[in-house]
Simulated assay, not measured.
Amino acid sequence: MSPSKRSLELSLGVVIRRLPGVTRWAKWSWKAIAVLPGSDHGAWKVLREEDGATEFHAGTLTLSLHAGETEAYIHNLTAKEPSIYVIMRHRAGDPPLDLVLVTASPYEAQDYTDNGEDIVERVPLPDALRGVIADFIDRHHVEEPFVKRKRDRARVDRVEDGRGDPRIKQTGDVYRAPRKVLS
């Protein structure tokens, strides 16, 4: 990546584990468990089968890092457990999941949790990928100083009884409560 380029793209394979379901309504339980940096393209290849659990290389997605999102990447790397977030969606058929996105930004991952349709799973961040993200942050992060907003000096404590809307022709207070007309 050249220093002038403000983004970086990496291919990540997603490993998903299938376990037998624990209820009669769900035959299988699916969970993203790992990412494979630099993985080639593959769709739902069996990697390992053991004691009823099957691990698949579900597919390869592109992880995009952008210079404008370095604050989110810093938040991720300084978290207790740095992660890659895998966003998946249910679909009819076999396999029952579509891979949508992989991201290193916890802010972007949170946006996908809002719709209730997508499945967002945290996967441990591999050490090699941690180094790549840290290097990207070092090259592109610009600390923005906090600027406190100044309050305007408008007086909001003044009483404006009777002022009202200038389009209303009325001699009295336009904010007053209606009174019963006495005959």
Rank of each mutant, 00 (worst) to 15 (best):
Arg6Phe: 10
Glu9Tyr: 05
Val14Leu: 00
Ile16Glu: 00
Gly21Cys: 11
Arg24Pro: 06
Trp25Lys: 11
Ala26Arg: 12
Lys27Met: 12
Ser29His: 09
Ser29Asn: 11
Trp30Lys: 05
Lys31Ser: 08
Ala32Cys: 08
Ile33Pro: 00
Ile33Phe: 01
Ala34Lys: 00
Leu36Lys: 12
Ser39Leu: 12
His41Gln: 11
His41Pro: 07
Gly42His: 08
Leu47His: 01
Arg48Lys: 10
Glu49Lys: 11
Ala53Trp: 04
Thr54Asn: 05
Phe56Glu: 01
Ala58Gly: 02
Leu61Trp: 03
Thr62Lys: 03
Leu63Lys: 03
His66Phe: 15
Ala67Leu: 09
Glu69Leu: 11
Glu71Leu: 15
Ile74Leu: 09
Thr78Arg: 11
Ile87Met: 01
Met88Arg: 04
Arg89Leu: 14
Arg91Trp: 06
Arg91Ile: 06
Ala92Trp: 10
Gly93Tyr: 04
Pro95Asn: 03
Leu97Tyr: 00
Asp98Gly: 05
Leu99Asn: 01
Leu101Gly: 07
Val102Met: 07
Val102His: 03
Thr103Asp: 06
Ser105Tyr: 04
Glu108His: 06
Glu108Pro: 02
Ala109Glu: 01
Thr113Gln: 13
Gly116His: 01
Glu117Ser: 10
Ile119Lys: 01
Val123Met: 02
Leu129Ile: 12
Leu129Asn: 09
Leu129Ser: 10
Ala134Thr: 10
Phe136Glu: 06
Phe136Lys: 05
Ile137Lys: 11
Asp138Thr: 10
Arg139Ala: 14
His141Val: 03
Phe146Tyr: 15
Lys148Val: 14
Lys150Leu: 06
Arg151Trp: 13
Arg153Met: 11
Arg155His: 15
Val156Thr: 14
Glu160Ser: 13
Glu160Arg: 12
Glu160Leu: 13
Gly164Thr: 02
Asp165Tyr: 10
Pro166Ala: 06
Gln170Asn: 08
Val174Asn: 08
